[in-house]
């Protein structure tokens, strides 16, 4: 464990807490893409199956349990509890256009052709594009609530910090995992135009609006 990975995990935790707080406090999931949340639940479910087979540390286990539980809790809030506020008309990204190519790629490019490893690879690839429905929804509505932009910023920073962690581990531990690194870079690149808007607008107290 290093400070970059730890701060990445904290940023990830923060993003999830911000999202839950936003939905719970405003009793509304307006502007939130349910499809991205479904993809995240799929990401954690397929990645953390090793919860039962390998123990890394109490921290690792606790975080895995929290990520799985919170992703399903978010889906419950969006599709059941506050479904009246779910903006179905703007959450129209076709998930199958993400899941199917990622599934094929996981079978073709992986470290080991075993069920657990292919599911882990699928999860890594899926996570890199899971935010697309959400970013698509923000571009479609042309704006996002400030709290939602903080959620996206924390979520984007989590994998950006993981990239620093991978550089650190390469130089100090001689460890690297190309699948995680390439997917992590793709994932972070997808946030770049959002990061630009967040820094130039939200941090100056303006509303996050996209040129429609």
């Amino acid at each position: 464990m290093n400070v970059f990975r730890l701060s990445g995990d904290v940023s990830h935790l923060l993003a999830i807490l911000i999202l839950l707080m936003k939905i719970w406090k405003t009793r509304s999931c307006a502007g939130i893409s349910g499809k991205s949340q479904i993809l995240f639940a799929l990401v954690y479910t397929t990645r953390y199956l090793d919860l039962f087979t390998s123990f890394i540390s109490p921290y690792n286990t606790a975080m895995k349990v929290f990520f799985i539980a919170s992703s399903y809790a978010t889906i419950y809030l969006i599709y059941l509890k506050f479904k009246a506020t779910y903006d179905r008309n703007h959450d129209t990204f076709r998930m199958e256009f993400l899941v199917l190519p990622v599934l094929v790629l996981a079978f073709v490019v992986n470290h080991d052709f075993t069920p657990l490893e292919i599911l882990w690879t699928f999860s890594i690839y899926l996570e890199s594009v899971a935010i697309l429905p959400q970013l698509f929804m923000v571009s479609k509505t042309g704006q996002a609530e400030t709290i939602t932009s903080h959620y996206l910023f924390a979520l984007g920073m989590y994998r950006a910090l993981y990239i620093v962690n991978w550089v650190y581990r390469y130089y100090f531990e001689g460890f690297y995992d190309l699948i995680a690194i390439i997917a992590g870079v793709v994932q972070t690149v997808l946030y770049c135009d959002f990061f630009y808007l967040y820094v130039t607008k939200v941090l100056k107290g303006k509303q996050l609006t996209l040129p429609a």
């Binding site: 975080m63 470290h111 993981y162």
Partner: peptide
């Protein structure tokens, strides 16, 4: 690709 024994990252 090299086999990664155990994924210790989240």
């Amino acid at each position: 690709l090299q086999v990664i024994s155990e994924h210790d990252e989240l």
